[in-house]
Design a protein around this nucleic acid. Structure first.
Lengths: 329, 329
DNA sequence: CTGAAAGCGCTAACAT
DNA sequence: ATGTTAGCGCTTTCAG
């Protein structure tokens, strides 16, 4: 039963805590204490142990420690994709909040695929993380159930689910969509379009956008589901011939739309307005600068990290968004 | 000795393999086999065990499994930062290559800080990953020694170190810098500048750039070390008054330079050429489109993933780069 | 095809 | 301040 996909772990066993103990002439538990509770150990003893560690190049086996103590000091992080810059700041924020405290970040991607998400969640939970942070909410009931049974802090982010599993750090996607539609209506746009994925968060943006357009007495906006990256934005332009305002569910998409509009000779914002979401640094720097719904992804990550470390304060945090009208709409 | 930063792991123990075994009326090892070697177990037995697992909501404890088998099925990934989009594709590539095989990605950031890198490396190795992939090479001798002693596959990426620890997947940063300088010289530029960080890879780009400029008979280029993000690019423009060509060590920086040049009324590429590195999708979409040294970050990640899974073929892979001259230079 | 025994490397709980 | 004992939840090895 040889699995050809196994990494060939070379020979040469790593030194163990017991070996350090033997070399220092103490019992294993003393070495363990030098590592975790150093000032519980007498100075000379500690120094002998430390010398032994250095001599052997000892690296404590956290896997064994996790099993013995039932504390993995790991947090699972599940994002749709890391390639989309929109989530990078959130991962960074989580890492910034937790790594200094000795937590490891175990990262996994769902790729916007519900089946994969379920598998990934199981794989993540198998490592017994002390908490799990995810962008969005579990797509399946099974996934949700797994998280609930795991009995660890769970933080759903980038949205405000109605029935959260535990903690939430996000913003109101519906309201964000509505805000953009309202802005378009207020600036005299008549034929709106939305471009984005069909995941729950994008769909909520669409719902808010759609409803507010109706309320403003505009004809129903179009919805284009072509992908989530800049290329999809370029492609979308072919369908935008009779729209005068587009809300793209993320900034990369919006920048793609801008790029597609240029050769089509449609002037932005005169002929058509374009608003993105996320506020990538680059959106502010291009010309014309991109109007967008600003989301503070870094704050989402840091807040999620803080939430799993403490039970004080609210566990349902709405970080909001800001409509930033720059030069494209 | 209460650490207030401990996550409050709630009560309610997760079901164990032994409990599943008891419920199914088999011995623990049989449950273990159902999980790992299902077709070694008779059909009816297997079905009983599977039913018991479902009934209990059993999630195998991979921490215990790792300890017992000495195989963690985890890979450590160390990057300078995840916020810089330039490494996102590499992480994605690693994840794509390894997650389907059951490996977890333990992600950590060095933040271009040598001390932090050393600590992070130790933290990573303590989890006993079966391999470690890093962007660049260990900054300190201690870090290198730790990696060597870990006796696991190590892949250094985004560079071609002269004395690699083990495997390498990267490109020649020196040659990339030289190629840009050569291009500038060939297109009549006289006063070159370089903007980037002071990390080893950026420095190698600078060296190549500088040497080739000399060879081409140009006056020595300037080197600006102001940061690595787009904002640093904007700031750099103040120092670029008498340069007619800039090589920015990454595309975000280059886009920042472009943004800074606009209000300064300096035309690109007529007054000044700008070339980046990385080939972010967005660079191709802005106007004028960004000239850049294309690096296939995704391929670097996937190749690194493949390398740690197999010992066949070369372990020193130069994936090269492509100079892409578009509209900024 | 299934099981019994032993142990991975560490820490918790109790001594002393 | 240090040590002893037991055991975390699983897999390995060897039997049958």
């Amino acid at each position: 039963m040889d699995d050809p996909n196994l990494i060939d772990t070379k020979g040469g066993a790593a030194p163990t805590l017991a070996q350090v103990a033997a070399r220092a002439g103490v019992s294993p538990i003393t070495v363990s204490r030098v590592l975790r509770l150093p000032d519980m150990v007498a100075r000379p003893t500690r120094e002998r142990v430390e010398a032994a560690m250095r001599a052997l190049g000892y690296v404590p086996n956290l896997v064994a420690g996790s099993l013995a103590s039932a504390r993995s000091r790991a947090v699972g992080v599940l994002v749709p994709t890391v390639a989309n810059a929109i989530f990078a700041d959130t991962i960074q924020g989580i890492s910034d909040a937790l790594e200094p405290l000795g937590y490891a970040v175990v990262l996994a991607q769902s790729r916007y695929d519900d089946t994969r998400e379920e598998k990934t969640l199981a794989a993540l939970l198998g490592r017994r993380p002390e908490a799990l942070i995810m962008v969005g909410s579990p797509a399946t009931a099974v996934g949700g159930e797994m998280l609930r049974r795991a009995r660890i802090p769970v933080v759903e982010t980038w949205d405000l689910p109605v029935n959260p599993i535990d903690a939430v750090v996000g913003f109101d996607n519906h309201a964000a969509g509505a805000a953009v539609a309202q802005h378009f209506a207020a600036t005299g746009r008549r034929k709106l379009a939305f471009i984005g994925g069909d995941d729950p968060r994008a769909t909520r943006r669409w719902m808010g956008f759609h409803e507010m357009a109706q309320e403003a007495g505009l004809e129903p906006p179009r919805r284009l589901v072509l992908g989530r990256n800049a290329r999809a934005g370029v492609a979308a332009v072919a369908e935008l011939a009779d729209s005068d305002a587009v809300f793209a569910a993320n900034d990369a998409l919006a920048i793609g739309v801008l790029a597609g509009l240029r050769p089509a000779n449609r002037r932005v914002p005169d002929d058509i307005a374009v608003v993105g979401l996320g506020d990538l640094e680059i959106g502010r720097l291009i010309a014309p600068s991109l109007s967008t719904v600003r989301i503070d992804g870094g704050a989402i990550g840091r807040t999620a990290g803080r939430l799993i470390l403490s039970n004080e304060g609210s566990r349902h945090i709405n970080l909001g968004f800001t409509l930033l009208i720059r030069h494209t709409g």
